[in-house]
Write a protein that binds this DNA or RNA. Structure first.
Length: 271
DNA sequence: CAACGGACCTGCCTGC
DNA sequence: TGCAGGCAGGTCCGTT
């Protein structure tokens, strides 16, 4: 589920429920996530007040005076706010329990997610330090992409999915943005003009903002069971639509598989 | 340094 | 119905 718009939707969804609350307990039922959940988490977090709920790329940050919990949802992670006593389902790996008897519960079947603890500035953490600009911020421009791509031969789709280039653009939105910008996903990153990169930067922002708007609708039923319906699927122009007609030219969309990742594109509209 | 493949996992879908 | 195989929204790491 979690691409950047969903991570931001999650942040907005949980913030009112956890901000200024005191943690009284951390229950770790399964510590084997992407990295083991560190002992510091159940040791240091209880007694702390959540003073900030932030996002950097696809990482969620729960700030306290003593340190910061760093949460990444991986491919299959999600969090919910629940009564602290409610029975955990399968794959409910961690609860952060608050003094009002609610808890933030992490659910992650594939366990590609991560929950870490740092007592220093989380933005300096090895996982966050190298992240490129926020895609929705001012720093993501055509000039930035053009400069970062200089001399690089990798496919532009891999290039914009590199978190050092721009933080948090996953496979779905990379495909969508390239379609909107009319750029072929396999084109060498270093062989794209600054003007076209300006179109791409704008397309990334447009598609993320649109998805974020849709995410707003899932917020309402945030407590409802899973919320994992395909709410933005209707908006997707290329992702998952191989063989179906291009929304612009009606020719069938193509599928390219590079490594494990699929690229969906229109060979007529994208060059 | 750049580029690629493998690794980490479970669940779901398809086809035999 | 069962089972094997392929696929999935991420991203780090080791090897070329």
């Amino acid at each position: 589920m979690p691409e950047l718009p969903e991570v931001e939707t999650t942040r907005r969804g949980i913030a009112p429920h956890v901000l200024h609350k005191k943690v009284i307990e951390v229950r770790v039922r399964e510590a084997r996530l992407r990295w083991p959940v560190p002992d510091e988490l159940p040791r240091r977090l209880p007694g702390q007040i959540i003073e900030g709920v932030e996002r950097r790329g696809k990482y969620l940050l729960l700030r306290t005076r003593a340190g910061c919990a760093i949460l990444h949802l991986g491919m299959s992670g999600s969090v919910r706010i629940l009564p602290a006593h409610s029975a955990p389902r399968k794959h409910d790996h961690v609860d952060i329990v608050f003094d009002d008897r609610t808890c933030l519960r992490l659910h992650d079947p594939r366990r590609f997610g991560a929950l870490l603890w740092t007592h220093t500035d989380p933005l300096h953490h090895p996982l966050l330090r190298q992240l490129g600009p926020e895609p929705l911020g001012r720093a993501l421009t055509g000039a930035h992409l053009h400069r970062a791509a200089r001399g690089r031969t990798l496919a532009v789709k891999n290039f914009i999915m590199d978190s050092r280039v721009v933080a948090g653009v996953g496979n779905i939105y990379a495909n969508e943005a390239l379609f909107l910008a009319g750029i072929h996903p396999a084109r060498a990153a270093g062989r794209i003009t600054e003007a076209r990169y300006a179109l791409l930067a704008a397309a990334v922002k447009r598609v993320l903002r649109a998805a974020l708007k849709q995410g707003g609708t899932t917020l309402r039923d945030y407590y409802a069971s899973d919320g994992s319906t395909g709410y933005f699927q209707q908006c997707l122009k290329v992702y998952g639509r191989a063989g179906q007609p291009c929304t612009a030219c009606k020719r069938p969309l193509k599928l390219l598989r590079h490594g494990q990742r699929s690229s969906f594109y229109c060979s007529h509209c994208q060059r």
